[in-house]
Design a protein around this nucleic acid. Sequence first.
DNA 1: ATAATTAAGGATATATTTATCCTCAATTGT
DNA 2: ACAATTGAGGATAAATATATCCTTAATTAT
Lengths: 158, 158
Amino acid sequence: MKPLKAVKLFSQIQNGNPVFSKSTEYALRATIFIARKASKEKKATIKMVAEGIGAPQSFTAKILQQLTKKNTGIISSVTGPSGGLYISGEAKKRSIFTVLELMGEIEVIEKCIMGLPKCNDANPCSMHKSYKIIKQELLRMLREKTIEELARSKDAIL
Amino acid sequence: MKPLKAVKLFSQIQNGNPVFSKSTEYALRATIFIARKASKEKKATIKMVAEGIGAPQSFTAKILQQLTKKNTGIISSVTGPSGGLYISGEAKKRSIFTVLELMGEIEVIEKCIMGLPKCNDANPCSMHKSYKIIKQELLRMLREKTIEELARSKDAIL
DNA sequence: ATAATTAAGGATATATTTATCCTCAATTGT
DNA sequence: ACAATTGAGGATAAATATATCCTTAATTAT
């Protein structure tokens, strides 16, 4: 069985979806960046974050809005001079799952791998059982990894 | 730690990306449907497949084109009366990995979970190691599951 | 108070994915 | 050969995700 090449180039159909959406990728990177580089005393500006994570500035701003929403946000923001973004010690203890939850990515993971709306444990698709194992391990990993922990690995590129 | 709700509704940013693209979801469903319902003697038409998997007909046709391309395709197609789609016994023995490969989904899985282009084993992001384990299990599962096997589970909804 | 700085948020533009439509080519049966 | 059936494939449209721009609100320092 020789390896196949994706036929993308020969087709009108493109499959460029990342596993997580680009918004979510930026959200993860921004969270880790802020946790690592900023504090209540030394906040990071959107500009700094965008440059630090290699994402467009205005779009980064939009995503950070999602993560700073009152009663849900894990990232704190302050307007005005010497304002910016930071993550409280409390919030740093939360898991990266929280970020993905705010980005609406958890319900995506929970869905049927083949996109069947009626698929569930009682009425499973043929991949359900196999995917469920993977899914559970992924979710467990996401729940265990704290923002703090990710921020602490300073040898990592992000 | 109370559970959070995604802030989708309050934001301009939507995250509707499935784990696999919709095209890939359809491709998986179509493959299993054809493997289960069709044979060289009794081919399935695009119309039958589209209805069987609950996908738009013309779009299903487009996706099936990708899976029938010469030298790469796992699905066979014949034009003309009593023509249609089927999967050879040989092809049925191949894994579902093949379908995902043709849909360009494997390289998506291989990518950095945070979308960092420079992330790799030598220069990892902070989630690299954890994600790698999940990724490998997913890929192994996909490589092991044959089309035949999925088609055989007739109690499954698809 | 005023000016300066910074995020919030609405409106809009661009890119990509998803979906539809129509004509053509291939095959079959008469 | 001819008509009918079916997929192939190009062109285009619609929906969604990504990205930009601009004005407003909040805060700080002078």
